[in-house]
Structure formats: structure tokens, C-alpha cells
Design a protein around this nucleic acid. Structure first.
Length: 335
DNA sequence: CTAGGGTTAG
């Protein structure tokens, strides 16, 4: 092997390390790294990320310690590794030493740290970090704001979550989902449903994540009526193939005492719910027509074209229900 | 080379 320390050689070796890391061949990555005459921060960072991806935090940290100098990415990579494995103290300590060392944390640092504040005991840290982020000027970043909302939700601080949501300059689907999931998870199903209805009326896409969360809220509130409506919407939107959504529907009916419905959904999951090797991320979230394989419609031609409001919608006859997009419809229905 | 949201039980 040519061992000139030219810049291009470092560059090429780094690319090679990256290739091996991507191929999950850490041994080879390590070999290239060890044989390099000159290394730079990038060489270390790439190898550290390779170890982090394999969950080898000790070795990653050792490499980190051996580095002559560290940059923000070195820190972030290690912090996110610890955060993902639930090692909160290590993550926070690293964050502190990054700041102490004079390095400016960026969005990646913040989102990783925010993910470690997940209980009411950590609310103070979370709020402190929120303040830090605001002062550092990162609050306008959608991804970071979404992480803050989720952090407040996990700490049971929904007032703060909603407050931030309201003042955010831009929202995306994840902002909405984080808020709705927060209310659902904190036992406020009706508030979650209210916001969810706004999403349904909008042009936003509804994916398996939001459905799993709202239906779970319905399950805990034993809101059979609304749970059934949500089931109907699941069919219409073609997300019935999701294991998450299927599981939570089974649970919702069970908690509501509808054992027959529960086991029917369960059987549908065995039959076709997850057919075709579709994974959750591949489930289409478009609202165009019926899904190729939906859990209910398939059974006996349960899908029926129905003209409602603007354009044709799909009604699921086996639910004997339609999703009510407005809260006011609730009263009408009961009257 | 580094970032955001999901179910069930116990």
C-alpha cells in the first residue's frame, strides 16, 4: 500500500472507511484506518459512527478519546449513540463538555439530547434545554421545535407543548403528530381527537404513526364509537396493513368489550393485512381510493362507493360508520 | 461522518 500522506490519500482512505462502515464491515474499516499514515477528524468521525451504528459505544468512545481534536460532529455522533441506547447521563455529560470545550452545539446536538428527557422527573432539564435552544436561536427550526414538543409531551407538559406549537412559524405533519400523540398518550383523547379532526379536514397526509396513536387513545378511553369511526378511516386511507395500526385496533375493540370485532381484525391481520411484504413505511398514505388490500373491505366486498360532500368518498360498510370530520357532528349524531 | 413522531403486556 502506498503510504504517502498526500491530501488525496487521506481523502481516498476516508472514503474507503466510509464504504466499509456502510457495508457493516467494521474490521476492514478499522484496518484501513490503522494503516493510514495521516488521519484527520473525518477519519475518526466516520469510524466512530460505524461503531455507534453497531452499538459498540465503548469502542466509539475510546476512539473519541484518542482523537487529537474533536469537532461538533464527533460529539454529536457519540451523543446520539448514547441517547439511543438510553444512556442519558453520558449523553448529557458529553453535551456539557462540548460546550465547555468551546464548540457550538447545533440542531443535531439538541435533538439527540431532547430525546433523553422523557419523564416528569426530567422536565426541568427539558425546560432548561428549551431555553438554551431559544437563546441559541434554534427554535425556528421545525425539526428541533418538533423535538421540543415531543419532549414536553413525554414529560407530561402538554400546555408547554401546545404553547410552542401555537407560536411555531412552520408546522409539518410531524409537528401535528407530536402534539396529537402527546395528548393521546397523556390521557387527553378528546383533545387529541379534536386536533386530529383538523388534520383530517386539511390536505395533510395521515400515516400509520398518527393512526396508531389516536386509536390507542380511543382504546384507553374506551371510546368505541370514535374508535369505530377511526377504524373506518383506516380502511379508507389504506393504512390497515400496518402491524401497529392492526394491533391497536385489536386492542381498542378488546378494551371496549367487542371481542368479536377484536378477533375479526386480528384474523384479518393474519390474512392479508401484511401481505406482499409491505412494511409499515411502505404503506401508502394517499387518500385515493381503496387500498389494494385493506383489512376489512377484502372480506366480502364491504367497500361501497358513496357520494359525500366534495367528490367521492369511500364508506366502509362493515363499520356501519363514517368518520365524522367535525366535532359538531357529534351532537347531531347523538340527537 | 451527526437530527424529529407510533401499538400491545408486564
Amino acid at each position: 500500500m502506498c503510504r504517502s500522506n498526500s491530501i488525496s490519500n487521506i481523502f481516498l482512505s476516508n472514503r474507503l472507511i466510509g464504504f466499509y462502515v456502510e457495508s457493516r464491515s467494521l474490521m476492514y474499516a478499522r484496518r484501513v484506518f490503522d494503516e493510514m499514515f495521516m488521519k484527520n477528524v473525518y477519519s475518526y468521525n466516520t469510524l466512530i459512527s460505524g461503531h455507534v451504528n453497531e452499538g459498540l459505544l465503548n469502542q466509539a468512545h475510546q476512539l473519541f478519546n484518542e482523537m487529537p481534536e474533536r469537532d461538533t460532529i464527533s460529539y454529536n455522533t457519540l451523543i446520539s449513540g448514547y441517547a439511543k441506547l438510553g444512556h442519558k447521563e453520558e449523553a448529557l455529560e458529553l453535551f456539557k463538555s462540548m460546550v465547555f470545550e468551546g464548540l457550538r452545539p447545533n440542531g443535531f446536538s439538541f435533538t439527540s439530547i431532547l430525546g433523553t428527557f422523557s419523564s416528569i422527573l426530567e422536565t426541568r432539564y427539558g425546560a432548561g434545554m428549551h431555553g438554551f435552544i431559544t437563546k441559541a436561536g434554534f427554535e425556528g427550526n421545525v425539526v428541533i421545535a418538533n423535538s421540543i414538543i415531543d419532549m414536553y409531551a413525554k414529560c407530561g407538559e402538554m400546555e408547554n407543548a401546545e404553547k410552542l406549537f401555537c407560536i411555531m412559524p412552520d408546522h409539518d405533519e410531524i409537528s401535528w403528530t407530536s402534539l396529537v400523540c402527546g395528548f393521546a398518550k397523556n390521557g387527553e383523547f378528546w383533545r387529541a381527537l379534536k386536533i386530529f379532526r383538523e388534520m383530517v379536514r386539511s390536505t395533510m397526509e395521515l400515516d400509520t404513526v398518527i393512526f396508531a396513536s389516536v386509536i390507542s387513545g380511543a382504546a384507553w378511553s374506551t371510546a368505541l364509537e370514535e374508535g369505530t369511526q377511526l377504524h373506518c378511516l383506516v380502511v379508507k386511507r389504506g393504512v390497515g396493513g400496518s402491524v401497529y395500526v392492526g394491533s391497536v385496533l385489536v386492542d381498542m375493540y378488546a378494551k371496549c368489550g367487542k371481542i368479536e370485532s377484536s378477533s375479526r381484525v386480528f384474523e384479518e391481520m393474519q390474512n392479508g393485512g401484511v401481505q406482499g411484504n409491505q412494511t409499515d413505511s411502505q404503506i401508502p398514505t394517499k387518500k385515493s381510493g381503496p387500498p389494494a388490500f385493506n383489512t376489512l373491505g377484502k372480506e366480502c366486498g364491504l367497500m361501497e362507493r358513496h357520494d359525500l360532500r366534495l367528490g367521492a368518498k369511500w364508506t366502509c360498510r362493515s363499520c356501519y360508520s363514517n368518520f365524522r370530520e367535525h366535532e359538531d357532528d357529534e351532537e347531531e349524531h347523538k340527537a
